[in-house]
Structure formats: structure tokens, C-alpha cells
């Protein structure tokens, strides 16, 4: 998960240095608005298409395959990819494509859960700490330091061990391991907005703390966090796939993508498609998400 933040934070840091207090909410919205109306690069278009396909797989798997992902035709085990089975079959004669398609719902949902946990818990911590400051900020800051100090994949592993092995718990663990980065980003964004001129103005005009928080600070601070969230979504897919690969997700016949790779692994010698196909699907989806996040991020910076 660590990696994710690089690009986003980079730009957040950039703001702090160059734009400083001038960086008011109004600018941001017009900036990204202009960007969205502008020409969408081809690669971003492809990325959105990839994401749309996977979302469609998750929502309506039966539209894309009529084969049962959990029960196959044992006599057709290890069929190579071809016209009948586009991505071949596995060790029990199950259609790999059907398994990937039916596994996407679980992979996407769990990544979504992870990001939601990261955004909500981390965001709240950053928001409260950044807005209230003082000892609360100090305490929350230490908690964030601690969470950052533990390698995030290790943290996810021990949390999923404590919760029990299934994909939902792996998602929760992944989300918790990402709390710290969201908290940091949210806090720095809040600090930056809080000191800006128009918040001062709102305060002078007698706005209550809560009102200012929700009316002015949150909407402006939330933008960089959302951009990070998109990137984290991709990384959550990777982390959850990693956990599934190590056997900490749902057991077969579930077909989470990481599990598919783990399952296919011992057949790499004679049925390499069982590893390569789901592995590439993970890579392509994460790549698409990263591309979109980068694009959103660039939009924000202009």
C-alpha cells in the first residue's frame, strides 16, 4: 500500500510549498472542472474501459459466461486456451474465464471495503486531528506513526490472522493497514485549508466550528483524499490478492484472483495459463486504476 501514495502525496507536498495559502477551494473546483471538460487521453480512455468491463463482470457475471465457475467437467481438465475455452480450464476442468469473471465481484468488493475503511477511519482521524489540533492531534499522530511503522503487508497479515481467514476479513485487514496514509493526507489537507483566507473569513463571520468543518473544510480537503482513494483501490486489489495467494482469503471453490494464481501455481510447468491469465488480469486492472488516479491527480495540479 505504501507505494500508492507517492504520486498523490508528491503533489500534495508541492501544494504546500508553492501554492500555500492561495490554494483556496474555489481554485480547485474550477481547475478540475476544466480538466474534466478537456480531452481525455487515450490511455485514460482505455483504463476506464477496462474498469467498466470488470465492473460489469462483477455485477452481471452471467451475461459474460454461461459456465459454472465452481463445477467443471473433470474430463476436460487442463484444456489449453482455445476457441471453446478462451482461457483454458483448470485442474478440475473448470473454465478459467468463468472463474475470473465470477471472482471479480469478490475481488472488487473487497478492494472497495478496504478503501472505504481506509478513507472513513483514516479520514476521520486526519480530519479530527487536523481540525482540533492540540493533544488529540498529538495522540492521533502517534497512532498514525505506529501504523506507518509496521510494514503494511505484515500488519494486514496479522490482522487477518486475528479475524480469521476469509476474503472479507482480508479486505478489513487491508483497509486497516491503509488507515495511516489516509489519516496523514487528510490531516495535511485540513491543515492547509484551515489556515487559508476564506476559512479565516468564515470564522470571523461567526460560523460555528462544526459548520465550518462540514461546510468549508471537509469538501475542500476531501479532493486529494479521493484521488488517493482511487490509487489505493488498485493497491488494495494487489494486497488482497497477495493475502489470497498466501491462503488467507476465501478457500476454493471461491475464485478470487489471487487465489486463482495460487491454485494455478503448481501447474505452472504444464498449464502456465492458470497463473498467467489471472495474474495479468490483476495487473491490468491495477494499472487501469493507477492510470485513472494519475490522471485525476494531474487534473488537480493544473
Amino acid at each position: 500500500m505504501t507505494a500508492a501514495i507517492l504520486t498523490t502525496d508528491e503533489s500534495a507536498g508541492g501544494h504546500q510549498q508553492s501554492d500555500g495559502p492561495n490554494h483556496a477551494g474555489q481554485d480547485i473546483s474550477t481547475g478540475s472542472g476544466l480538466r474534466l471538460r478537456g480531452r481525455i487521453p487515450l490511455s485514460v480512455g482505455i483504463a476506464f474501459t477496462v474498469l467498466a468491463i470488470v465492473l460489469a463482470w462483477s455485477l452481471f457475471p452471467d451475461l459474460f459466461t454461461s459456465r459454472n465457475p465452481a463445477a467443471g467437467v473433470p474430463n476436460r481438465k487442463f484444456t489449453s486456451p482455445g476457441l471453446n475455452y478462451w482461457l483454458g480450464t483448470d485442474h478440475l476442468g473448470r473454465d478459467l474465464l468463468a472463474r475470473i469473471i465470477h471472482g471479480s465481484a469478490s475481488s472488487m468488493t473487497s478492494a472497495l471495503i478496504a478503501v472505504t475503511i481506509g478513507v472513513v477511519v483514516g479520514g476521520l482521524m486526519g480530519l479530527v486531528g487536523g481540525y482540533l489540533g492540540g493533544w488529540i492531534d498529538a495522540v492521533l499522530g502517534r497512532v498514525v506513526d505506529v501504523l506507518l511503522a509496521i510494514p503494511s503487508f505484515l500488519l494486514a497479515v496479522i490482522v487477518v490472522t486475528a479475524l480469521g481467514y476469509d476474503t472479507r476479513n482480508a479486505a478489513i485487514a487491508t483497509g486497516l493497514s491503509a488507515v495511516a496514509v489516509f489519516a496523514r493526507l487528510m490531516r495535511s489537507s485540513v491543515l492547509q485549508v484551515r489556515t487559508s483566507v476564506f476559512i479565516e473569513a468564515a470564522r470571523v463571520n461567526g460560523g460555528s466550528g462544526i459548520y465550518i468543518l462540514f461546510r468549508h473544510i471537509l469538501p475542500n480537503a476531501v479532493r486529494p483524499v479521493l484521488s488517493l482513494a482511487v490509487l489505493q483501490f488498485g493497491l488494495a486489489i494487489l494486497t488482497i490478492a497477495g493475502l489470497a495467494f498466501l491462503g488467507y482469503g476465501d478457500p476454493p471453490p471461491a475464485s478470487d484472483w489471487g487465489l486463482l494464481v495460487a491454485d494455478g501455481r503448481e501447474h505452472l510447468l504444464h498449464a502456465p495459463w492458470l497463473v498467467i491469465a489471472p495474474g495479468l488480469v490483476i495487473a491490468i486492472v491495477v494499472l487501469a486504476v493507477s492510470r485513472i488516479s494519475r490522471w485525476l491527480d494531474q487534473g488537480r495540479n493544473q
Binding site: A71, G72, H91, L92, G247, P252
Partner: peptide, 23 residues
């Protein structure tokens, strides 16, 4: 034993018995 359990799960599933496999 793992693929065997998965296959048994499929076979008994056809009979209406739910067999979960946990590695």
C-alpha cells in the same frame, strides 16, 4: 488431498450436500 476434496465437494453438491473445503 485438496483437489480431491474439491472434486468430492462437486460430486456431493450434485446430490444436494454442501461440502465446504478449507485448506
Amino acid at each position: 488431498s485438496i483437489p480431491e476434496a474439491e472434486l468430492i465437494s462437486q460430486q456431493l453438491g450434485r446430490l444436494g450436500i454442501r461440502v465446504a473445503t478449507q485448506k
